[in-house]
C-alpha cells in the first residue's frame, strides 16, 4: 500500500489544526453567532439594491459553511444552517422552508467534511466553498421544481462562475472570521 505523502497528510485532518476548534455556545460569543448571519442577510437584501453585480455573493451560505467547518459538530451545524435558512425564508416571498432545508444539509455535510479534512487549508476552503455553493443552488432549484412545481431557470454556466467568485471571496472572509474567533476564543 502506498504511503501517504506530506501533502495528503497535511490536507487530511490528522495534523494539528492551526486555528482553534470553536465549540458552540461555550467559547464563541453568542452575539457573534446572531450578528454575523444577520449581517449576511442584510447584505443580501440591501447591497444588490444599489450594486446589482454584488448580488452573486451568498454571504449567509458562506457564514454557515464557515461555522460548520469551525465547529466540527454536525448537530450544531445543521441547527445553525436551519436557523439561517429559515431567516432567509422569512424575508423571501416563497414558502418558508426552502432555504431552511438546503442550508440544514449544507451545515451537516460541511461539518462532516471538517472531520475528514484540514479545513484551515486555503485550497480546501476554496474547493469546499465552491462545492457547497453549487450544492446549495442545485438543491434549491430541485426543491422549487420538484416540491413546489414552480418554473425556475437553471443556468449551469452562470452557477459555476458564481460559485468560483463566492469561493474566492470565502478565502479572505474565512481568514477575517478566523482572526475574529481567535481574538474572542481562548486556545483549547
Amino acid at each position: 500500500m502506498m504511503a501517504m505523502t506530506d501533502t495528503s497528510e497535511h490536507i487530511l485532518s490528522s495534523g494539528r489544526r492551526r486555528t482553534r476548534v470553536i465549540r458552540p455556545g461555550s467559547i464563541q460569543p453568542f452575539l457573534a453567532i446572531l450578528i454575523l448571519p444577520l449581517l449576511g442577510v442584510l447584505y443580501q437584501i440591501y447591497v444588490p439594491n444599489f450594486f446589482e453585480q454584488l448580488g452573486y455573493l451568498e454571504l449567509p451560505l458562506l457564514i454557515v459553511v464557515y461555522y460548520s467547518l469551525a465547529w466540527r459538530s454536525q448537530i450544531a451545524a445543521l441547527f445553525f444552517g436551519a436557523a439561517v435558512g429559515l431567516m432567509q425564508d422569512a424575508l423571501s416571498h416563497h414558502y418558508v422552508g426552502l432555504f431552511g432545508i438546503t442550508k440544514t444539509l449544507v451545515g451537516y455535510f460541511a461539518a462532516s467534511m471538517s472531520l475528514r479534512f484540514d479545513v484551515d487549508n486555503a485550497a480546501i476552503r476554496f474547493i469546499l466553498s465552491f462545492f457547497f455553493f453549487v450544492f446549495h443552488q442545485f438543491f434549491y432549484w430541485i426543491m422549487v421544481r420538484a416540491l413546489l412545481g414552480l418554473g425556475m431557470a437553471f443556468e449551469p454556466a452562470q452557477m459555476f462562475i458564481q460559485a468560483g467568485l463566492n469561493a474566492l471571496v470565502a478565502i479572505p472572509l474565512f481568514i477575517v472570521l478566523d482572526k475574529l474567533n481567535n481574538r474572542w476564543s481562548p486556545r483549547l
Partner: peptide, 20 residues
C-alpha cells in the same frame, strides 16, 4: 447525528407541506 438531521429535515418538510 443522522437521526437529528432527518428529524430537522422532516419537520421542515412538514412545515412546507402545511403551507402548500
Amino acid at each position: 447525528n443522522l437521526t437529528v438531521l432527518l428529524l430537522v429535515l422532516f419537520s421542515q418538510l412538514m412545515l412546507l407541506a402545511y403551507q402548500v
